[in-house]
């Protein structure tokens, strides 16, 4: 269970990005977090694994308080938090297998990491997860030889190699084409139930959020302004979250992205 209480994040002296967030995620639920750019979605996710330092508040994962952890304790806690990134964040020059096994870096020692001598159980786990998502035949290919969708599968498998207790996905589909991004969302949804793993997904595509997740959290200016079932996520909620931003209809239509948005993600 992930429990966030009164989470505040402020960069320097400027206005807070997160203004006292509360969120509770239990069991194997898939939660999507929607909100305009700059609403604090990414910051919230990164506060959970402390890639971003929270200013105040509390984040508990299965009873462990994460906010005050340091050094080895923080690293041990991070092992239990898998993360999938928008830009995949793979090591392009290494093979798919090496990338996948990187998920075990928190468990193996430095010598094993340098020589890539991972325990046999890790290698077995890597192969079975790669088979599950259909990339096992790429094990010895370099990561940069794969297509976008395949690369994100590597990213997902790497996160799952950590044997995480929660999976964070920061706009996992924003760099992918519409068809591929649907596949990745479906994959995350089914993996969540197979591994009984709570999954938090930052997402821009409201249509996909409604289809593939069972709970939607809406952020605006660092505050939670919607928390409910996809069925309850109506026009008013959409307007409240993206309020003042033109053309929300486009977001819920079949075409998930405007071309400008696709171009922005490509360049990102």
């Amino acid at each position: 269970m992930l429990e966030i209480n009164n989470l505040v994040k402020r960069y320097g002296q400027s206005e807070a990005v997160l203004k006292g967030l509360d969120l509770k995620v239990e069991g194997n639920s898939v939660v999507s977090i929607v909100g305009a750019s700059g609403a604090g979605k990414s910051t919230m996710l990164r506060c959970i694994n402390r890639l971003v330092e929270p200013t105040s508040g509390s984040i508990k994962l299965n009873g462990t308080e994460l906010v005050n952890l340091k050094g080895a304790e923080l690293r041990r806690a991070r092992r239990k938090i898998g993360m999938v990134f928008q830009g995949f964040n793979l090591l392009d020059r290494l093979t798919v297998m090496e990338n996948v096994l990187a998920g075990r870096l928190g468990y193996v020692n430095l010598y094993q990491a340098i020589t890539r001598r991972y325990p046999q159980t890790d290698i077995e786990r890597a192969f079975s997860l790669m088979e599950r998502v259909g990339i096992a035949h790429y094990a010895n290919k370099r990561a940069d030889e794969l297509s976008g969708g395949e690369r994100q599968r590597v990213g997902v498998v790497r996160a799952l190699m950590q044997e995480p207790e929660v999976l964070l996905a920061d706009e996992p589909t924003a760099s992918l084409d519409p068809r591929t991004s649907e596949q990745i969302m479906m994959l995350l949804q089914s993996l969540a139930s197979e591994l009984s793993l709570p999954v938090l997904i930052n997402i821009h595509n409201v249509a996909q959020a409604k289809t593939y997740t069972e709970r939607i959290v809406g952020l605006r200016h660092g505050k939670m302004i919607f928390d409910g079932l996809p069925a309850d996520f109506n026009k008013e909620a959409l307007d409240a979250i993206y309020g003042g931003i033109e053309a929300p209809d486009e977001t819920v239509s079949e075409q998930p992205y405007s071309s400008a948005e696709v171009a922005r993600h490509d360049s990102a």
Binding site: A72, R75, A102
Partner: peptide, 14 residues
């Protein structure tokens, strides 16, 4: 970005 990903997996600095 890969550095961030490795940190997120709980890897030490080395």
């Amino acid at each position: 970005k890969p550095v961030e990903a490795m940190e997120a997996s709980g890897a030490s600095k080395a």
